[in-house]
Amino acid sequence: MQQTQQQLIKVNGIQLSVHIAGPESGKPVWLLHGFPECWYSWRHQITALAAQGYRVFAPEMRGYGATEAPEAVEAYDLITICGDIQGAMNHFGHEQVAMIGHDWGAPIAWHLALLEPARVKAVCGLSVPFGGRPRQPAINMMREAYKDKFHYMLYFQTQGPAEAELAADIPRTMRLMMHGLDSQAGGALVQDKPADSAWLEDYTDPGRQPAWCSDEAFEVYVNTFEQSGFCGPINWYRNFERNWERTEPLAGRQIEQPALFLIGDRDPVGALEAYTIKKMPSVVPQVEQHVIADCGHWIQAEKPADVNGLLLPFLERHFPAT
């Protein structure tokens, strides 16, 4: 992997860890990871982007790794987390950037495109589409749709049990989630069991991470959560109502920048977000969408050649390195 430099900076009331690679003169590209991942999930893209001449910035998002993890649940709403990246862009003097996010990083990228239309020149979301501000908080719709079933996001709403379960055996947790989100058949997002059950209790540890995750990469993932725990990352899921309230000024706004959306054909999020994906061009007029074959949720690590083969030409068209 391309060698990176870690910088710890003070922004938006926290210490933010940012891993940086590529020529200092290169145009800045931001890579925002999701859950339960870390900056290292972008290792294949960091190498490719730096080789193309971009200056790459991969933060450890709020609550992860060496970045601070405030205790308060409300410290993890979407607008606040966007503020972390806005503050970091200010710190580094960025006037024009490309913004790329996966999983929870995707909504941050999409909303930064809305909040910073002059600065974010191109935007890419992996796995999670943008459908505009919903008519009500998404968690309300989940409670109605899954009131008789277990849904991991509903499980996450109660403080304590989820973070304790996931932290009890971090390597096992990571193996189960990596394998479980590899395909729709194995996806453990919605389960036919009581809503107050533990998430991963019924699953057998496969004993090894998937082939796409090397031992070195797996160690970085595990070390990230051994360092920071799961409370901060899960707090992201406890802010659906607050996110909805704080994004009211953005209601009805379209993302006008050139946009790219990528998702794996075996990603369980595809089924959950099928309607949003279909309507996405109505709120992101310049979006181009691609489905990557034989690919689960961990798209940039599972199929790095496919992702880079779409991402680099997109950036070359809309935010060229030179």
Rank of each mutant, 00 (worst) to 15 (best):
L114P: 02
L154S: 13
D267W: 00
Q2E: 12
G83W: 02
F261T: 05
Q254G: 04
Q209F: 14
A164R: 00
Y40N: 11
L189E: 05
D196H: 08
P281H: 07
P107M: 12
D182K: 08
V11C: 11
Y64M: 10
S228P: 01
P161I: 14
P313T: 09
R266Y: 03
R43N: 10
I139S: 08
V123Y: 04
A162H: 00
N239H: 01
D182A: 15
G83H: 06
I263T: 11
P117Q: 03
R143Y: 01
M142N: 02
Q300T: 00
G53A: 11
V291G: 06
L260D: 08
L310W: 02
G160A: 13
N239A: 11
I234G: 11
F156A: 15
V29D: 10
H44F: 14
H290L: 07
R135G: 15
Y237A: 14
D84N: 02
A113I: 06
S127Y: 03
W110C: 14
I20G: 13
N140F: 10
L311Y: 12
T67L: 06
P210Q: 09
C82S: 11
S17V: 00
A118I: 01
G207C: 11
G34W: 06
G131L: 11
T80G: 12
I100G: 13
D169T: 04
Q257A: 15
A138M: 14
A66G: 12
P117C: 07
K149H: 10
R119M: 12
L200C: 10
Q136F: 07
V97E: 07
H44Q: 00
E60G: 11
R43D: 07
M141G: 11
V291D: 01
W212Y: 15
A211E: 15
W199I: 09
F230Q: 02
D267F: 05
G264N: 06
V120Q: 05
C124V: 14
L312Y: 05
P304W: 01
G53V: 10
F261K: 04
G63H: 04
Q300H: 09
A98P: 03
M1Q: 03
K27I: 04
V307C: 15
F35M: 10
G131P: 07
A305I: 14
I14T: 10
I139E: 01
L312Q: 05
G53R: 05
I234H: 01
I85H: 10
